[in-house]
């Protein structure tokens, strides 16, 4: 397959830490508008893959292309974010000493230079977008709360809200429902499906119910490379996947 016409294109990517191969000849392609779920045992390299896509880790070998033409290995985190790749972290990281609203203000797409930030004044349009997002993530009643005081699930949602505010083309979402109740999980799945209508999404999750609810193509990683890929039913019936991940 060619890198053209794809949104995200990973080919033959490898990276090792002190001799340990965390990603091993990994290839993965995501089409524009596609949502993909990534599953795999602990240490399979899912988070590391996101690190590579977002520029946090430089691969030792392999190609990583965005939009069919941008070589992501040549850009740093900030540049990649500005290209339109947003990321939610496995461990929710929001700005704890800022209010919920300020967290969104910071994430809101727009000029990023220090000078424009110094003289920035919120436009009506921006206020409206923040209002929308607050509503979407159900935190409009808590806009003045310090993010530090949110519950774990609320932080996850706030981080998803920040992703939305960034207005990216591609969302990388690492374990969004860890620590959520079943009801919240279902809500999150709904939200992600909603988002996926207009953007491409890559979701990492261990929760199989959640993955099923997403109802998208699934890729199973193991020891740094793709073990199986296809519909959830196809993947979960794969003998090797059962062996290394699902068990029994």
């Amino acid at each position: 397959m060619k890198a053209q016409d794809t949104l995200l294109y990973l080919d033959g990517v490898s990276v090792s830490f002190d001799g340990f191969r965390a990603i091993n000849n990994l290839s993965l392609v995501l089409q524009t508008g596609e949502m993909r779920a990534i599953i795999g045992p602990n240490g399979a390299g899912k988070t590391t893959m996101m690190d590579i896509i977002t520029g946090k880790t430089k691969p030792d070998a392999g190609d990583v292309y965005f939009n069919g033409e941008v070589d992501l290995t040549r850009h740093d985190e900030a540049e990649i974010a500005l290209l339109g790749i947003g990321r939610k972290f496995q461990k929710p990281t929001v700005f704890e000493s800022h209010t919920v609203e300020d967290n969104l203000v910071l994430a809101l797409s727009g000029p990023r230079s220090a000078f424009s930030a110094l003289f920035h004044r919120q436009s009506a349009n921006e206020a409206e977008r923040i209002e929308d997002i607050l509503y979407t993530i159900r935190l409009n009643g808590k806009r003045d709360w310090l993010a530090a005081n949110l519950s774990h699930g609320q932080k996850q949602w706030l981080e998803i809200g920040m992703l939305l505010a960034q207005d990216p083309k591609l969302l990388l979402v690492d374990e969004p429902v860890a620590g959520m109740t079943d009801a919240e999980t279902a809500e999150t799945a709904k939200l992600l499906r909603e988002i996926a209508k207009t953007r491409s999404v890559l979701v990492v999750e261990h929760d199989m119910h959640f993955v099923r609810e997403l109802d998208v193509k699934v890729t199973c990683l193991h020891e740094g490379s793709v073990l199986a890929e296809g519909s959830l039913d196809f993947v979960s019936n794969d003998q090797r996947v059962i062996e290394v991940y699902l068990g029994r």
Partner: peptide
């Protein structure tokens, strides 16, 4: 200013700020 908010964000979670597209070093 918004710059101040960015600074506080850098103080609390520097790399997060980068993933939002801010050139933290500047």
């Amino acid at each position: 200013s918004k710059l101040g908010k960015v600074l506080v964000g850098v103080r609390d979670a520097e790399s997060r700020m980068r993933f939002l597209g801010y050139r933290v070093d500047r």
